[in-house]
Simulated assay, not measured.
Amino acid sequence: MPTTSHDDALAPYDAVLLLSFGGPEAPDEVMPFLRRVTAGRDVPEDRLQEVATHYHHFGGRSPINDQNRELRAALEAEVARRGSTVPVLWGNRNSDPYVTDTLRAARAEGMLRICVVVTSAYSSYSGCRQYREDLAAATEGLGGAGVDLEIDKVRPYALHPGFVAVNTERLVEAVADVPAADLAAARLLFVTHSVPEAMDDTSGPGDGDGNLYVEQHLRVGHLIAQGLAARTGTTLEHELVFCSRSGSPRTPWLEPDVNDRIEELAAEGVSTVVVAPIGFVSDHMEVVNDLDREAQETADRVGVRMVRVPTAGTHPVFVETLVDLLQERAAEARDEVVVPARADQGDLRPSVCDPGCCPNLRAAKPALCGRD
């Protein structure tokens, strides 16, 4: 039976769970994976076949699982460096290792109190509540063995100063070799995953005005652009664009698409675009396909130079940020007074979600780590 020392910074937790989206690791896994992801969403079969080609461009293997293996190892090293003995586990929503299997193995080893960090930084149904629903479904899937599990999660962390800092650092490094004259005339495109407009409209607390998903991205982008100016003296005109639209073509999704915007900027005479995928924490399929392949092809076709900024990945500052968040949540669990780190004075999301926060618009489902 594992026990965590009272002076361990991650006490009272027995384990940390890195919870991610998952992805196929072989060609024959691609379509089953896509069907799991889109179940109940009225996505046409021909659209799934189209998306499958994205994976087949990369041998039918998504990069996300390898990146999560690297992130888990980096988290384990940072946790140990800080003197904690709490193990770091890994589970996925949509592929092996499934979160239910991870929790079952943890329960069998006597790990009963677990803190979760998800590989999604922003507030929305798909970025937060759906992970909470998956945790509820996983514990239900364990039957009676899941009753004694206590699961908490860290808060959405897009506006943690560490997340902003590492994305600023990535941007500064990416433009270091761009000639000053070209950079001064460049346009900075912050990119994130498009979601249905209705999902953005209802993102945030149930008693709020919604649109927190877009608002958080705009604030993060503004802070990063400020950081670039402070570090380099270069002020870039910037905006938020989207990629990876999926789902029913009858459903309105957030726009503009990054490819459409690159074409428009080329028509306006812009010759350099800097593409910063701040909506993603690692270079997974939405980045390597939708940006490195498709957006790059668009830029080449219209004669625009595209500079792609790396994601946070396993940058030491990002890893330290996630462990800071875990320690913050552990302190809350110990009923200590906690002043959460924040990058600005805007809305700060709690670790325990309020009732109605980022609702499931298709069907009401149980969700852990919330008050409803």
Rank of each mutant, 00 (worst) to 15 (best):
A176S: 07
L149P: 10
T192H: 02
A225D: 04
I64K: 04
T100G: 00
Q67K: 09
T53R: 15
F163S: 09
S123W: 07
W253S: 04
F280S: 01
N360F: 04
C243Y: 07
P87Q: 13
R305K: 11
A363E: 15
S20P: 07
Q226I: 08
N360I: 02
Q216E: 14
Q67S: 11
T53E: 15
R41F: 08
E294S: 10
A9I: 12
V86N: 10
M31S: 03
E263P: 10
G279T: 09
D96A: 09
P156S: 03
T234G: 08
E173V: 03
V220K: 08
V37W: 07
G127K: 08
I64A: 05
R349I: 00
K365S: 10
L183M: 12
A26D: 05
R69P: 06
D28Y: 09
L218R: 15
L135P: 04
P249W: 10
L75K: 13
R187N: 02
T251Q: 15
P161D: 02
L223E: 15
R329Q: 14
V287W: 03
K365E: 13
L348F: 12
A137L: 07
L75F: 14
V317R: 13
D372F: 04
S120D: 11
C357T: 11
D182Q: 13
D148S: 15
L34K: 08
A52Y: 07
V275D: 00
G91E: 05
R155W: 00
L10M: 12
H54D: 14
L223M: 12
R301M: 10
H217S: 08
N65M: 12
S194A: 14
S62Q: 05
M306T: 01
E336S: 05
L254N: 14
V166A: 03
N68I: 11
E78V: 08
V319T: 00
R371T: 11
S120F: 12
A145E: 14
V214W: 11
D46K: 13
I114R: 12
E169Y: 03
R371G: 07
N167H: 13
L89Q: 02
H315V: 01
G23Q: 05
A364S: 14
S124E: 03
A108W: 09
L325D: 04
L34T: 11
F33G: 02
C128R: 14
C358P: 01
D260I: 11
T232R: 09
A121W: 01
Q327L: 12
F190E: 04
N92D: 13
V88K: 11
R301V: 07
R72Q: 14
S95K: 06
C353D: 15
R104L: 01
P179A: 08
V274I: 15
M1W: 10
L236Q: 05
T53F: 10
V287C: 05
V274R: 04
A145T: 00
Y157S: 03
V323N: 05
E50F: 13
A145I: 01
V191F: 01
A176I: 03
P359R: 00
D182A: 13
D42P: 04
P63Q: 08
C358T: 09
D260A: 15
L236T: 06
R81D: 14
S124N: 08
R69W: 12
K153C: 07
R231C: 00
V175I: 14
A165E: 13
R81W: 01
E76W: 09
N360T: 03
P63L: 02
A137P: 01
N68Y: 09
A363V: 10
Y213G: 06
H56C: 05
C358S: 06
V175T: 09
C243S: 15
N360G: 01
Y122H: 15
